[in-house]
């Protein structure tokens, strides 16, 4: 069977349908990666036409949920960019440890790698018990996946390399339990997390958080959606709170004046007002 290639008009039709069924709008996602992801997942499920896909997502709610789960780009890794985590440990956590109750927000969570890396580092700094982490995701299936925290074993090799570069005495075995095909985050690291299904931004979040970790999510958005989401996220930060974005990302120009740079190489920022 020839793999399906999607035309722009096909993508638009699919986006409209998914938006009306789920409220998730892919139309401002970065073009090539979202096109490729849809083609990949459609071919994975062996659909022969766009019409067949549309019929399926209209009539099978469970399928639609799993389909969205597959479309969202999963792959990050535990302790990605170890130098950034070391900088957080040295430059950010000491400033935050003095605050009474620490509130951290991870919007657009997909795999949980960032969440559990953060929890590991908070534990290293003896700050975990004093912290509440809010996690939001576009998909319920992702939330369940993150709660379970079970990952395919093949992802572990990158985590092993990363943890070697971290300023820690611990090894991965202190953090995960491995079995033949998978590994799971140990239960003691699944604490102090508040899951907020589907709500990326709401009024209750305004000026609530001391730190927002928002790395490598904007990559999948176009410039407009990057600016829109980051404007909302800026609202969720308290004065003098920290924002960390991925090392390949930039703060959109119109929002730059709201932040001062704490670490240029690792993209660590502090909110001005």
């Amino acid at each position: 069977m020839t793999p399906i290639k999607l035309r722009i008009s096909d993508l638009k039709t699919i986006f409209v349908e998914i938006n009306s069924l789920t409220g998730i709008d892919f139309s401002n996602y970065a073009f090539f990666s979202i096109k490729r992801r849809f083609e990949k997942v459609i071919n994975l499920y062996n659909f022969e036409s766009v019409t067949e896909l549309l019929n399926k997502i209209r009539n099978d709610e469970l399928f639609l949920k799993n389909f969205i789960f597959d479309i969202l780009p999963h792959q990050t890794e535990l302790f990605r960019d170890a130098q950034t985590w070391n900088a957080i440990l040295k430059q950010v956590f000491p400033k935050l440890s003095k605050r009474e109750k620490l509130k951290i927000y991870l919007p657009y969570c997909i795999s949980g790698d960032e969440l559990y890396s953060l929890i590991f580092m908070l534990n290293e700094a003896n700050m975990l018990s004093n912290t509440e982490i809010t996690v939001s995701s576009l998909s319920d299936v992702n939330i369940e996946f993150i709660k379970n925290a079970i990952y395919p074993l093949k992802k572990l090799s990158s985590a092993e390399k990363n943890i070697e570069e971290l300023d820690t005495e611990k090894t991965l075995n202190d953090f995960v339990i491995s079995s033949q095909y998978s590994y799971e985050i140990r239960n003691e690291y699944k604490k102090n997390i508040k899951f907020d299904n589907k709500t990326i931004f709401n009024q209750n979040y305004i000026k609530q958080f001391d730190l927002v970790l928002y790395r490598n999510s904007m990559l999948y958005f176009n410039a407009k959606l990057q600016e829109d989401t980051l404007r909302n996220i800026t609202e969720t930060l308290k004065k003098n709170a920290y924002l960390i974005i991925g090392i390949g990302e930039e703060i959109p120009i119109l929002l730059q004046k709201k932040y001062k740079i704490i670490n240029n190489d690792e993209n660590i920022y502090k909110k001005n007002t």
Binding site: A30, F32, A223, G248
Partner: peptide
């Protein structure tokens, strides 16, 4: 450690897929 895509409108996208 990033994929590099060429996007319409003569811009790049990076990806951690």
């Amino acid at each position: 450690n990033y994929h590099l895509y060429i996007e319409p409108g003569n811009t790049f996208s990076l990806s951690t897929e």
